[in-house]
Nucleic acid binder design. Structure first.
Lengths: 127, 127
DNA sequence: GCTTGACTTGGAGTTAACTCCAAGAGGTAG
DNA sequence: CTACCTCTTGGAGTTAACTCCAAGTCAAGC
C-alpha cells in the first residue's frame, strides 16, 4: 500500500505519516526497489493504533517508548503491559476530571436557562 | 489578595496568572496605588474557573471568547449559553472516544497477561 | 538615604507536535 | 528524449500555550 492510500485511509497527511516513522512512532516501513514506502497490513495496524492513541491525547513520547519495547521482542512483554496499565490509569483519571466538569457545565447551562427565562418574564410583564 | 497567594492557592505560576490576564483569559485585575495586582474574590473565582476548564483541555481561544461575552453584560446571555452547550457537547464526544480506547486498552492488557502466563507455563514445563 | 526583595511591563524563548519546503530521483505518457 | 507526477530526504517553519528575562518601580528595613 502506497503512502497516499494509507494517508487517505486513516485521514493523516503523508507528511504526518513520514514524521511518525521518522521519530519511531511506528516501526520502519519497507521501501520497494525504487525507494518508495510500501505499507504492509501490519504497518497499517500500527498507523491505526497510533492514530487512535494520539487521538485521545496520549503523548508521542510514551508511544515511542511502547514501539521501542515492542521491537525488542518478548523480553519486554512485562514492561509493555505495565506501560499500558499506567496509561490506562491516567486515562481513567482524566475522564473522571472531565466527568466533573461536564456536571459543572450542565449546572451552569441550567442556570443560564433560568436567568434567560426570568429576563423574558420580566420583559413581557413590563410590556 | 496578592499574586503570590493566588499563585499558591491555585497552583499556577505568577507568570501564568499574568499571561492569562494579558490575553484576556481572565478579566483585568485591579492594581493598588503602587500598581500591584490585588485579586478580589471574584477574580479568584475566574482563576479557578479557567484553571478547571484549561485542565480538561478546553482551548484558550474559546475561553477568551467566553470572557469577552461575559464582559459585554446581559445581552450575551444567550451566546454564552450556546457556547457552553457547544463545548459540553464536544467534551461528551471526547469522553466517548476515550471510553472506547479505555476498553481497547483493557483488552490489550488482558491479552498481555495471558501471553505472559503462557510463557511462564511453557518455561516451567521445560524445566 | 541606600539596599533589598517582590512586584511591574513588554518582549523573547521554549516545547510538543506537527506541517511545509527545496532539491533530487524513478517511472510513465507523448 | 523530455516533461510531468509522485515519491524521497533532511531541515526549516508554524501553532498553542506557556515560561523566562531584562529593565524599571516602590515600600520596608537598616
Amino acid at each position: 500500500m502506497l503512502i497516499a492510500e494509507v494517508s487517505e485511509k486513516f485521514n493523516l497527511t503523508p507528511d504526518t505519516l513520514r514524521y511518525y516513522e521518522r521519530i519511531g512512532l511506528i516501526p520502519r516501513v519497507n521501501r520497494n526497489k525504487s525507494g518508495i514506502r510500501d505499507y504492509t497490513e501490519q504497518d497499517c495496524k500500527w498507523v491505526e493504533f497510533i492514530k487512535c492513541m494520539r487521538g485521545i491525547g496520549l503523548p508521542v513520547e510514551i508511544l515511542i517508548e511502547y514501539v521501542e519495547l515492542y521491537q525488542q521482542g518478548d523480553s519486554t512483554l512485562d514492561s509493555r503491559k505495565e506501560l499500558l496499565i499506567d496509561q490506562r490509569k491516567q486515562l481513567a483519571a482524566r475522564m473522571e476530571e472531565m466527568q466533573k466538569v461536564l456536571v459543572r457545565m450542565d449546572g451552569k447551562i441550567t442556570r443560564y436557562e433560568q436567568t434567560i427565562l426570568e429576563k423574558e418574564k420580566g420583559l413581557s410583564r413590563a410590556k
